[in-house]
Each structure stands twice: as C-alpha cells, then as structure tokens.
C-alpha cells in the first residue's frame, strides 16, 4: 500500500492503495467516479478512456503509481452541465444506444479535437478507431465529432 496524491478533475485527492492498481479502479471503486467504464481491461476497447494532462489515455492498464503529477480528467470533469461542445454534439446527433461506451468515445474525441480542431472525415475515423461500440453507433459518432469540430 502507498499514498498517492492525485489531481482529479481539478480537485486534489489522496488515496492509499496498491501502487499497481489501475487508475480505472481507483476512479470507480475509491473515488466513486463511475463514468469511466470497464470494458476489456487490456486497452482494446477504449471504454476506460480518460485524459492525462489532456492526452487520451486508457485507464485500465495505467497503474496509479505511473500518474505522478499529471492531471486526470474524467467524463465527470469535462464540463459542469454537459455543455462541452463535444457533449452537445453528441446530444444533437442523439448518438447513444445503450450508452456504455460513450463516455470513452467522448473523451477520445475531445482530446483528438484539441490537437486537430478541423479534421478531415478520414482523420476522424482513424482517431476514433480505438473505441469499440457494440451497438454500432459509429456513423453518429463520426457525425458528432464533425459537428463539434465546427463549433
């Protein structure tokens, strides 16, 4: 066990746990931030995507000991009221079906658009390719990212 001082969604927080614990489970089990989802545990599906200093990162394989001073942002920290342009675009296109993968999709899209504010359709597809959606909402995800890129 070890103590870690984390910066999660702009708030300082302290946890005392096994240094190997993936950030996914720190968020879900210790900090009750359950918007970040468990899908595969091997960084294949993207449901657990968070931002580490703004960079989209799979939290299921990221040990808490590796976070250091980097700021963690989760879906809960993206906006106060769901009014981030990407969230608004998601609502406009009514993207979700079951909704389980969508937090991860949104976190990937936000980080991507920060680096590439005016992407081509092909760049959007490639950027979003790591996030599985079992319901098959891929076309709406694409459209929502495009809309967000225009706002």
């Amino acid at each position: 066990m070890a103590i870690f001082n984390l910066n999660v969604n702009g708030k300082k927080t302290q946890v005392d746990l096994d240094p190997a614990t993936p950030v996914l489970w720190v968020l879900r089990d210790h900090l009750n931030l359950v918007g970040t989802k468990y899908g595969c545990g091997i960084a294949q599906c993207g449901a657990c995507t968070i931002h580490l200093d703004g960079v989209a990162t799979r939290s299921c394989l990221l040990p808490v000991a590796a976070v250091g001073n980097k700021a963690i942002t989760t879906i809960e920290g993206l906006s106060e009221n769901g009014d981030h342009p990407v969230q608004k675009a998601w609502l406009e296109h009514d993207v979700p079906q079951c909704g389980y993968c969508q937090a991860g999709q949104i976190m990937t899209a936000v980080a991507f658009l920060k680096n590439n504010p005016h992407p081509s359709d092909e760049e959007i597809e490639t950027a979003m390719n790591g996030n599985l959606c079992r319901c098959g909402t891929y076309l709406r995800i694409r459209a929502a990212v495009k809309t967000a890129s225009k706002s």
Partner: peptide, 14 residues
C-alpha cells in the same frame, strides 16, 4: 431525443 442522453454524455451512474 433519448430521455437519458444528458446522463449518458456526462457519465452519470446508470
């Protein structure tokens, strides 16, 4: 629109 749309995109426990 999906009545749970906002909860989904803000990561509420569902």
């Amino acid at each position: 629109k999906n009545v749970d749309g906002l909860k989904i995109v803000t990561g509420k426990p569902m």
